[in-house]
Design a protein around this nucleic acid. Structure first.
Lengths: 351, 351
DNA sequence: ATGAAAGCGCTAACAG
DNA sequence: CTGTTAGCGCTTTCAT
């Protein structure tokens, strides 16, 4: 276990002073005479010197890390997102510190605090509760953040940037797709609608219905009652139950739009147990085009978000803030959603 | 943006010296007279003081982080694993730094180096290439590591611990299950068999066959040729292609065991395209009981690994090393695999 | 029981 | 161009 070598070892080896080495290290190479530089370079590589980032951070206050808060990487949607964020950050010289916070504001705050404490100045906030005011203290102290999948609320004055897909439009075209196929009775299946993105999705669905002259029927808009918790692992179970109830009702829907792909899987499961076949007897469309959507039987018609682009934009906005390149009001980037038609949707069967 | 408050602010506020506060902070409270302690406590909470972990680390060399290297959290298997590691680590007071390294030794080494550089002394190695010698330099310098899903190779002397499931036994019972159902011609579908875990799985499969008096037939042991790359995202595609070829062969298998759940999904997909139904015309069993296995149609019969237990054991072993509680040869913990029978396996259809 | 002082490894004025 | 120096915030002997 060889001793850690430091900047002064390098200086000694190269026969220069510490600050000369430091200058070299910090891109002020022009300051060095060519031969001095050569010597420094040789010393560094001979000694296999690696600057200690901890010492550097203590001195400068700059951290090479940004934080990323997601509900759970066990959910592949966020796993994929995390990966995109990671590579976007890497390109800009940052590492990402990942925190799974289960959409729990307490955990999120605690994690953000720890990060801040550790010198991290920026975090990508991949959850989407309506209210992020519980973070305002940290923002005041200098934490920069950008939210993902949380478009701004009405007239809200934001001190942070946001990226997101156009949830409203996504659900609108999803519903229109079903309408276009001839469906008139279209159910909606969701967990608790507590996030702005979900609110917008519901609105898009309703508007499409209304535009088609159909009055949204609360009886077939199924949203889990709040008490049941937030877990994504529950999504399938809830979706299944919702579907069974919907299908067993007096006037069942011929199609269902699900708040996301996991719920869509729940719908599949519920339909299967009720013996109704997709898409012959029930059409379903999901949201979030995760790999799973393509694999299942039948492959799921769904709304796709340009995740990779969204991730790089999020990181870009954040880093701009960190670099002081942008300091004004929050800017909000909305990406278009896209309908991917596969085999879970078809014309309603004549009865 | 209020100024960061430091230990000396607290000392001043409490009217004591810096070292007294430090003593308090580091659990040497017995050294403080009760009233002094009270004053320090008050000062800390009044000022909302939080020690700066960077400074602390610079001084002590101890990092509150451990690393976790996985192929990709976009793969839900590793996403779930990462989550378990995270909570196990949290319980022991560590945070985890996650790196997606795509099973690329170069990336893995680079990431490990960066971590080490940053003062991280331990990493959980959730990939499983046969050869980890490219990390031996770091180990020599003091990096501790524990591997996941990489049982030791023959007689290998390890300087690190390992946890893993009994891959051999898992595939053995999976194959026996099929055999017990009456299958005699059982195919094997896998990507490149470059990892110890995969080698063991293949061996378990072969042994079960041999024990049943069947000679393994290379014609139906399908493993992707090496040149095609490592991506997990390719698993489905490869599995699909393999299945199509297998099914189109002169003497097709009546059952397939897949190297993991993703490949099993590929098998599903291939079978569907060939119009052969599961389990009526083809039985399939997978490995890794990810959520997906339960969702798909039909639900997948598969081998389950006790992931949560494995994750905590991995962290425990690592932390013991870090704390110097264990310093001998590598110890290798193998967990039993369990067969979960669902609906993708059935008796072979009489022809 | 408490305090003074010496760094951990590095950066950034400032002087020369 | 290069070197001296004063910290960043904290821990840890070593005195007192």
């Amino acid at each position: 276990m060889k001793k850690k070598i430091t900047i002064s070892d390098v200086a000694r080896e190269a026969g220069v002073s510490i600050s000369t080495v430091s200058n070299y290290l910090n891109g002020r190479e022009e300051l060095l005479r060519p031969d001095t530089r050569k010597r420094v370079e040789r010393a560094i590589s001979d000694l296999e010197y690696r600057p200690n980032p901890v010492a550097r951070q203590l001195k400068t206050g700059n951290s090479p890390f940004i934080g990323l808060i997601v509900p759970s990487v066990a959910n592949p949607f966020y796993g994929v997102f995390a990966q995109y964020v990671e590579s976007a950050a890497a390109e800009l010289g940052y590492h990402v510190l990942l925190g799974n916070c289960s959409r729990d504001p307490g955990k999120e705050k605690e994690f953000a605090e720890q990060l801040f404490n550790y010198g991290v100045r920026g975090v990508v906030f991949g959850s989407s509760l309506v209210d992020v005011s519980y973070l305002s203290d940290l923002i005041k102290e200098g934490l920069r953040l950008v939210t993902f999948d949380r478009s701004s609320a009405q007239g809200e004055k934001m001190a942070f940037d946001a990226v997101g897909v156009d949830n409203w439009q996504g659900m609108y075209i999803a519903t229109r797709h079903l309408l276009g196929l001839g469906h008139r009775r279209i159910g909606f299946v969701s967990g608790p609608i507590k996030t702005i993105s979900r609110i917008n999705r519901l609105e898009g669905y309703k508007k499409a219905l209304i535009d088609a002259g159909i009055e949204p029927d609360p009886d077939i808009i199924w949203q889990m009652d709040v008490s049941a918790g937030y877990g994504d692992s529950d999504a399938i179970r809830i979706g299944r139950k919702a579907t069974q109830q919907l299908l067993a009702s007096p006037n069942p829907p011929t199609a269902i739009v699900a708040i996301n792909a996991m719920f869509a899987m729940g719908v599949y499961s519920g339909a299967r147990e009720m013996g109704v076949s997709i898409p012959d007897e029930l059409s379903v469309v999901g949201f979030d085009d995760i790999d799973l959507a393509e694999i299942v039987n039948p492959p799921l018609t769904t709304i796709r978000q340009p995740l990779a682009d969204m991730a790089s934009k999020a990181v870009e906005l954040l880093v701009n803030r960190l670099d002081g390149k942008h300091d004004g009001d929050g800017i909000c980037h909305t990406f278009p959603a896209e309908l991917v038609v596969r085999h879970s949707t078809d014309k309603p069967k004549a009865r």
